[in-house]
Design a protein around this nucleic acid. Structure first.
Lengths: 120, 120
DNA sequence: GGCACGCATCGACCAACGTCGATGCCCGCG
DNA sequence: CGCGGGCATCGACGTTGGTCGATGCGTGCC
């Protein structure tokens, strides 16, 4: 079945002899490629991956102080990661008195929602 | 249905008065979170996003010289991006004479395969 | 056998990122 | 009204990542 794999390769190599270095049409408009990369960039850190999984598992907003108690990182760093997730469109924050709670955005961008589904 | 959303928030805030700063159990083992982040890190660049889409659309191996002719980046930079995709498990390379062809790995890691499906 | 070509690797540079301590702001409480 | 606590912001630092020019390696061709 997989023996068909090698054929187009050699085929292509032969074709190259007179058709090399041909520019390829961009599959995505530049802004779209950048936006897609930005979503992935927000997930390119293990701490943020864990945070999103926690929010998904909990189903309820989570207090920043709980995150601070969970990870072995400083409070500013925790705030930094949460801000990244918020800027990327994954979460929103609401303040209740002294505390700030973060939760998954129910109106999350579609790209974020799909990426979320394959965390882990 | 979604009206239940606001309740646990205030509820949680009230609970916090005596249950604050409680560590959360890690949803993922650290290595797994790091591995997941690594996959996303490979996709955290618009050029690499375009490259993977091109490989998926083409269905056949693509020559490095074509990538070089496509993007407005130097040849070493193109090589660099392709190496990142190869190290992450997305693509493989084979040389035919002078040319090097890259193609999507048919035995791609599951995490990569899933991530590929939501490119764009 | 030397030459030209395609590609990978190297070294350097700058920007972006993760991390921290210090600081400032806002809220609830005495 | 001042005080303490939770969180965001700021400034600084080291590390990583994207980019390039220069170089090296292997291959096909004259």
């Amino acid at each position: 079945m997989a023996t068909m794999q090698a054929i187009p390769t050699v085929e292509a190599a032969a074709t190259r002899v007179r058709g090399c270095c041909v520019p390829i049409a961009m599959p995505l408009p530049p802004e779209r490629a950048e936006a897609t990369a930005a979503v992935f960039r927000a997930l390119a850190d293990p701490t943020r991956v864990q945070m999103l999984r926690m929010l998904g598992d909990a189903g309820t907003p989570i207090c920043v102080c709980d995150f601070t108690a969970t990870f072995e990182q400083s409070q500013p760093t925790i705030s930094h990661h949460l801000a990244k997730l918020r800027d990327a469109g994954f979460v929103r924050s609401e303040k209740h008195g002294i505390w700030a709670f973060y939760s998954l955005r129910e109106d999350m961008p579609e790209a974020c929602r799909q990426a979320l589904s394959l965390l882990g």
